[in-house]
Design a protein around this nucleic acid. Structure first.
Lengths: 108, 108
DNA sequence: CTCCTTGCTACAATTAACGTAGCATAACGC
DNA sequence: GCGTTATGCTACGTTAATTGTAGCAAGGAG
């Protein structure tokens, strides 16, 4: 099997290959990231209620993920406080929403 | 302590609620997991070609993810060697396949 | 036999996540 | 004013996960 040239394959987590899907898969593949998007699907949540929704995950990671998700344009912090999905974030949520039905059928 | 930390690599975080979606979001939210499913969408890949496809990620994590994905019933190791998606794994892939199109529009 | 590829593992080092506590700010009731 | 409460967010030591390199045993082909 021909070993492909690993010329530019020094990337840490494959998030900079130029293909947007790789960057997205990498971003979503970080701990609590998918869960955060999931929990924000409804009404805005404060940082503490979001933490409660995420099984009391440590605020360190939550804050890191929220910053990343805000930089990515998926989450925003409203004027009156509370995090919510941006239109783009809601669109992203819609794309993997079918996972819910799949998970029900999966039932590990 | 709110939870008892078992040192089992098979433990699925977020499954305390009993909701399958939480277990699934947690499983998919581990490093290289989404990427592996993505790279296995086509023809079967050997462990080494899969590693090449995943930017030479360390075989330690790859092997751990592959074991988890096999336990979950999403990936299988064929008789003649080479990893591929199970029917269920392909079904899972189909559910977040639209992420590709979304990522193109996203283009951070 | 040697050479090569397969799936997979050992090991130390690095990084990320956890858990608890706390800060600064602001909005209340008193 | 004061004390209380809640917000977003951070510090810091501990623990778990990931990384990178090397290597193993088994199998096939020459």
């Amino acid at each position: 099997m021909a070993k492909q040239a690993t010329s530019s394959a020094r990337r840490v987590r494959g998030s900079r290959t130029g293909r947007p899907i790789m960057a997205l898969l990498d971003l979503l593949g970080r701990r609590w990231c998918l869960r955060i998007l999931w929990e924000l699907r409804g009404d805005p949540l404060t940082s503490r209620s979001l933490r409660a929704a995420c099984d009391e995950a440590s605020p360190t990671v939550l804050q890191a993920r929220l910053t990343e998700l805000r930089d990515a344009g998926f989450v925003e912090l409203g004027e009156a406080g509370g995090y919510s999905l941006t239109p783009q974030g809601r669109e992203l949520y819609e794309t993997f929403m079918p996972l819910s039905r799949f998970a029900e059928r999966w039932r590990k």
